[in-house]
């Protein structure tokens, strides 16, 4: 098994809620509340969950755009949150991010050359000044844009092209890890596949590791080697792609999978859908015990008091991490395996 390049241990991020005239802290939004995982070299770890589950905050913590309330991230043997000044700047070269919104992620007053070249301005030792223009054009070429468009402004590009610019900026410093925060969800369907394929190509060519944060379970299945499912700031289930999609043991994962519409009308009546009660509770006041117990179809008294740990639990074929007292595998979707055919075609 490949070694871990990034290890997050018990990450917690609580945002204070200020109230009253004196702006005193009256509570905390528990956006991320004890998340641990490993990212292996060269793999894609998908993080899925609904809005408010803390997946975007997690991405920002891993980028150190936010300081955690507690917990640690070790990157390549270095404790990220202990780094300061030059050491932190150096570390930033190795972890980069691609944002969701291709419209707000590019400075509208800069040319594409400025945007993609900014990493070289900030880290001048990477590419000598003379070679920068060439380096930027090479990057544009790599992400499938016309290198001659270096002097254009972001608004002259479509959403998909802008996302490619964002990716070019992200990989400029040759990072080891790229954190992708919903990189395709703002794009048109016919353009999504282009960007997903580009990201897969770049991973192969540059040996990148991805953390792929998204709410679209189909895209995550397609691109990920392993998948983590988040609910209200905690990891509900974590395992190989096969484990999560083929043998989910957590009721939330099962409900989530059953709700995803599959583009095949013949499955209409075959699919059983697990309908969840109510809405996601507020992360400012999460339920006691298991956070999912208020909506869970399996909930018992134990779930209201005891927090289930994320630990290896049997899934029928083996075991994978799941945070449910009553973890039990259940097949939600019938998987059509195209891997062998795909390999056959390639040969």
């Amino acid at each position: 098994m490949a070694e871990a390049i990034l290890t997050a241990t018990d990450l917690v991020k609580h945002y204070p809620i200020k109230g009253g005239v004196l702006r005193r802290t009256v509570g905390h939004v528990k956006a991320v509340d004890g998340v641990s995982f490993e990212l292996l070299k060269g793999e894609t770890l998908g993080i899925v969950g609904e809005s408010g589950c803390g997946k975007s905050t997690l991405g920002r913590l891993l980028m150190r755009l936010e300081e955690p309330t507690s917990g640690s991230v070790v990157f390549d043997g270095v404790d990220m949150y202990a780094q300061k000044g030059r050491a932190m700047r150096k570390l930033r070269r190795d972890i980069q991010i691609v944002f969701q919104d291709p419209y707000t992620s590019l400075n509208p007053r800069k040319t594409v050359g400025d945007i993609v070249g900014e990493p070289f301005d900030i880290h001048p030792d990477v590419v000598p000044k003379k070679g920068r223009r060439k380096a930027v054009q090479d990057l544009l070429d790599l992400v499938g844009l016309n290198p001659e468009h270096i002097n254009r402004y972001p608004h002259q590009f479509s959403g998909g092209q802008r996302q490619r610019i964002g990716i070019a900026r992200g990989i400029a410093l040759n990072p080891k890890v790229l954190i992708c925060d919903e990189p395709v969800s703002a794009l048109d369907v016919s353009v999504q596949a282009q960007v997903v394929n580009l990201m897969e190509k770049l991973q192969d060519e540059l040996g990148l590791s991805y953390i792929f944060i998204a709410h679209d379970l189909s895209v995550v299945r397609h691109i990920s080697d392993r998948v983590g499912v988040m609910y209200l700031g905690k990891m509900a289930e974590l395992g190989e792609e096969d484990d999560i999609y083929g043998r989910p043991t957590h009721p939330y994962t099962q409900a989530l999978l059953s709700a995803v519409p599959v583009p095949d009308p013949t499955l209409r009546d075959k699919k059983e859908q697990i309908v969840l009660k109510g809405d996601v509770p507020s992360p400012a006041n999460p339920p006691s015990g298991c956070r999912f117990h208020t909506r869970c179809f399996k909930a018992q008294d134990k779930c209201k008091t005891d927090i289930p740990l994320l630990e290896l639990r049997p899934d029928g074929a083996g075991e994978h991490l799941s945070a449910c007292h009553f973890a039990q595998p259940r097949e939600i979707i019938e998987t059509i395996d195209l891997t062998e055919q795909g390999a056959g075609n390639a040969v």
């Binding site: 998987t335 395996d337 195209l338």
Partner: peptide, 12 residues
């Protein structure tokens, strides 16, 4: 071009 939830190893 769309990834399907029920397919594994699909080429987009």
């Amino acid at each position: 071009s769309i990834p399907r939830l029920d397919q594994k190893g699909q080429q987009l």
